[in-house]
Write a protein that binds this DNA or RNA. Structure first.
Lengths: 367, 367
DNA sequence: AACGCTCACTTGTGCGTACAACTTGAGGAT
DNA sequence: ATCCTCAAGTTGTACGCACAAGTGAGCGTT
């Protein structure tokens, strides 16, 4: 006895798909009529129609009554996967977000992918909504800037749902410690080290630090701050470190309970968590009539647009921003195409020396 | 004679869809068997199968051989409309783009809509690619910041394709003169007028102007500049007006062929196209050792983050930014829901007086 | 109680027919 | 040259039949 054979309409389907793939039938070509095929293969017209009906549904063919059946413009396109990448950021602000998005967009748009933008405002509830929203979409991959990355995350379950659906996830800018997902980050410890070492090399010994407590980046930058001190044999006084949170509104006058002016009076230099904090510090100093870098040297992070907007340009450790975005775009595409499954990239920051630390060597103005 | 009636299988389809929507048939329920329906409605089983086949394809039903036909878990999900709004901007930069996107995002995410982000880099070729890309997507509406809005647009044909597909388009920030589409813009003429009048009120008579030539906003702001002069009985000298283009790289040293320092030497105030230009002008003045506002008063537009980053804070005509984004989000949703088909909103700008024009009254420093 | 068999019922495959609706081009009438 | 009609060819709708294949409940045997 013969093995159960495939149904006739199935064989006809495969035959036609093969012809299309072999370019014997091209886009827009008229295909044999139903009657012709019925006669040629000695099959009933009904069976032909069954095969055609499925081919139409799968996007290979289309029919026009009275004219005939034709090969679709891009046969089998609908069979291909989604062409959208979900992107979740913490803020949609004027800081480094635009540069990162630009990097991601440039790479993805090149390959015909789209970006579905979402934002958490650094709140776990919003993060949950974003994830639920994207789960309903048909996305091919997910790029996430983690929300409050230093705190435990209540949305792990949702992240895992993406994984079980085979949707790759890539974290940028930071990552959750609980998850072993791919990430691309700036080497924040190194950045903190570079900033602090620069000040120490200039001869500073009493250096203040202002760091953010609820993002993992703040912890790492502080860690580099410590490392540079340790290496130089300098001690770190807790009283010179200020920690602040996302929600601190009155950051201008006191940070984490300590009045900035009191702190700065004891020091000759300060490491600011980012350019925004640096500008706020500069405003306070200006009010007091203190000059930079003569009275106080100042280093910050990120090299945002703000770093060059002030009268004294900021010495800052440049975040790779746009390059990081591009790298993230390339990586998520590779993960989708299964070229590589896992990434743990630390990008090197770069120290950019400008006016806020120039001319200060060993406490003596150098001109 | 009767009008041509709908085919039987169509009527059967609609009947079943109705029953599902009316919850008479629920997810997972087993539906009548083919034979039962055939007998009940006195239709051939073949016709029933035709209707069922389409319902399966559209996701309403699924079949299991030997068991029966069942209602799908989320019947008609694919039938629902798209929940994505295409957004096309000219740049993804640190200026007012983040605020606008934030406004749009806040409104749309509230209603469960997603943003598909695109960017033209102010080039018509890129704009074309974005539009072609979004045409292939299943978007519900389109928000566009026009590319080179003062120039004729070569992509009108693509914009019209959206309209013929019933996808509403809303322009923000400017609009193409060739198209009669909905738009939401800042009243740039009024903004130009407010900025200039403020200087005239302070006693300035020789006022320079720097404007962008290839965006329609530049034209309008200049038009307000003219209006204020006319109203005050002051003449405008062409030699005090500088036009620049998107692509001008060396804007710092000369703008449109004219050296800035030569120009500014003749004037007591300058209207700058935006905050970015204003900061560049401030840098030039700082190099020359000239002070603001004593030597030169300065007004700009947009009230971006930059306006408060410099040592002398900028007097600027605030762009509605975030409010404009929110308004755009609300409007496109109304257009999708057919609540209102057409919008032509001009939002009023607001003059914010800061250090760059303070203390200058009639040429005498007022302290 | 466990197992296997049968049978009724379901959907799947396949054949046949007929006529309706639509497209197109050829040929005739104007 | 233009318009109209009609016929041939195409897909669409609708009916009929038969048997294959999978499911599950009921029955009887073990």
């Amino acid at each position: 006895m013969l093995q159960t054979e495939k149904p006739k309409y199935q064989k006809l389907k495969e035959y036609i798909i093969q012809m299309i793939q072999a370019k014997e039938l091209n886009a827009g070509d008229k295909i044999f009529s139903e009657n012709e095929l019925a006669e040629r293969f000695d099959i009933s017209r009904h069976t032909i129609r069954q095969a055609f009906s499925e081919l139409v549904n799968e996007g290979w063919l289309y029919k026009v009554q009275g004219k005939g059946t034709f090969v679709n413009r891009e046969p089998g396109v609908r069979v291909k996967g989604a062409k959208t990448i979900g992107v979740i950021t913490t803020y949609l602000n004027d800081y480094i977000f635009p540069a990162i998005i630009r990097g991601v967009y440039d790479v993805l748009s090149e390959k015909g992918y789209n970006i579905a933008l979402n934002c958490t405002y650094n709140r776990h509830e919003k993060e949950r909504l974003c994830l639920e929203n994207l789960l309903e979409q048909n996305i091919a991959g997910l790029i996430v800037e983690p929300t409050k990355s230093a705190l435990p995350n209540p949305n792990i379950d949702l992240y895992k749902r993406f994984s079980t659906q085979g949707i790759p996830i890539l974290f940028i800018h930071g990552c959750y410690r609980e998850l072993e997902y791919s990430y691309i980050v700036e080497d924040d410890t190194e950045a903190g080290y570079m900033a602090t070492k620069h000040l120490i090399d200039l001869g500073h010994e009493r250096i203040a630090g202002i760091f953010k407590i609820d993002d993992i980046q703040g912890h790492y930058r502080f860690s580099g701050f410590q490392k540079a001190h340790l290496e130089a044999g300098l001690s770190i006084s807790d009283s010179r470190i200020i920690w602040f949170e996302t929600d601190d509104q009155d950051i201008k006058f006191k940070i984490g309970g300590t009045h900035i002016q009191d702190l700065l009076a004891q020091c000759s230099a300060v490491v600011c968590y980012n350019d925004q904090i640096a500008l706020k510090v500069m405003d306070i100093l200006r009010e007091k009539g203190l000059s930079i870098p003569d009275t106080l040297s100042l280093v910050s992070f990120d090299d945002s647009q703000l770093a060059q907007a002030s009268e004294v340009k900021l010495t800052t450790v440049a975040h790779p921003k746009e390059r990081l975005g591009e790298e993230a775009g390339r990586s998520i595409l590779n993960m989708i195409d299964r070229v590589q499954d896992y990434y743990d990239i630390k990008m090197q920051p770069e120290l950019i020396i400008r006016g806020s630390t120039e001319n200060w060597i060993g406490g003596i103005k150098n001109e």
